[in-house]
Design a protein around this nucleic acid. Structure first.
Lengths: 191, 191
DNA sequence: GACACCGTGTTGGATATTCAACAAACAGTT
DNA sequence: AACTGTTTGTTGAATATCCAACACGGTGTC
């Protein structure tokens, strides 16, 4: 919201985040020190503490950014028709793939509220909005099921093969979700 | 010398230089504005004026940096034997090639003391040091000849073909210079 | 245990950058 | 000629960062 950030603040936060991301690609998160991050970012250590309390806090702010970006993609779903949703999913997957290492680090690292849980929360919210509001409980359960399924499919895709293109994955996941949503429609009509 | 520059100063100067270099690759030098450079560098315009008086001044400081770097290479010649000098020349050429666009811009752009003249000056100094001090005048004239020749050979190489590798060019230029220096030796022995 | 070493938070004064605003010069338009 | 838009230098107060120094806790070594 406070997009009216001072140029200097923006820059400092950016390089610190980038440093941590780079370091996470080289070593385990728990072995990374504040000092290390600052040296790489070429930022005075005392400045670090005016922005973040510690390395976890910095990681958390990276999460924030990622989550926010994913939210944009998901929000866009509301305004598009079925055929375009596959393309949208593809964009999301490309975004994830380009940040492969960050996502892996975030999924592995369980500090505080896990990244996975937060992603599920926003995705669930999205799914509930998308379906009819009459049957919220069912939608909630089902969306948990669908989203956790999707996340693990993406996780495997990231970690293991990636022989499938983002486009192919998008179609696969889209099918997967629609089947789930479809079953809920049946559920409702049977009432 | 004042290598004890504040981190912020270093960063500001660096991004401003980089911006100008990038812009010089996209448009003519004279069409580049201070504002443009600052926008690209994401630096406040008023900050620009605490470091440089105008765009020419900024360009000049880029020259300084380049000249300084070339000086290092040339100074290194003093301490190496003949066989290694070809490798050294090669390094210098690789350095130039990596900054092809900057050199082209600097060679084209004649503001104030031309870049070409300055390079010749430092190269001449180097050559005079390298040869016997007895015959300074002759060395000076000859070095002007050699260096200007070398610069234009390099210029052509940069601008036109580059089918020759830096290594091949290094051997060629080295031959070229040694022949010149050799002739000076003859000159002296004939006295 | 005593020791040295290293990372952590925190502080205060010095310094650099930002931002908004201004007058001035200039180029193009009507 | 008046108007519009743009770049240029310059200013002062607000803000962010730097830097050096400190006390503290942990870790390993003799």
């Amino acid at each position: 919201m406070p997009d009216k950030l001072d140029r200097r603040k923006k820059y400092t936060r950016m390089v610190l985040k980038d440093s941590l991301i780079q370091l996470m690609n080289e070593k385990t998160f728990s072995s990374i020190t504040v000092k290390e991050v600052c040296v790489l970012a070429d930022i005075n250590r005392s400045t670090f503490y005016t922005h973040f309390t510690d390395v976890h806090d910095l990681l958390y702010s990276i999460e924030e950014e990622i989550i926010e970006e994913m939210n944009k993609y998901l929000n866009a779903f509301h305004f598009i028709v079925e055929e375009e949703s596959i393309q949208m999913t593809e964009k999301l997957l490309v975004y994830i793939k380009e940040r492969k290492e960050i996502f892996e680090a975030l999924l592995e690292n369980n500090t505080g509220t896990s990244f996975e849980k937060r992603v599920m929360d926003i995705a669930r919210l999205f799914l509930i909005n998308k379906t009819d509001t009459a049957n919220i409980d069912a939608a909630s359960y089902l969306s948990t099921f669908i989203v956790s399924g999707a996340i693990h499919v993406i996780k495997d895709w990231l970690l293991i093969d990636q022989t499938q293109s983002p486009k192919q994955m998008a179609e696969l996941i889209s099918q997967f979700c629609n089947k789930g949503l479809g079953s809920m429609e049946n559920e409702k009509s049977r009432e």
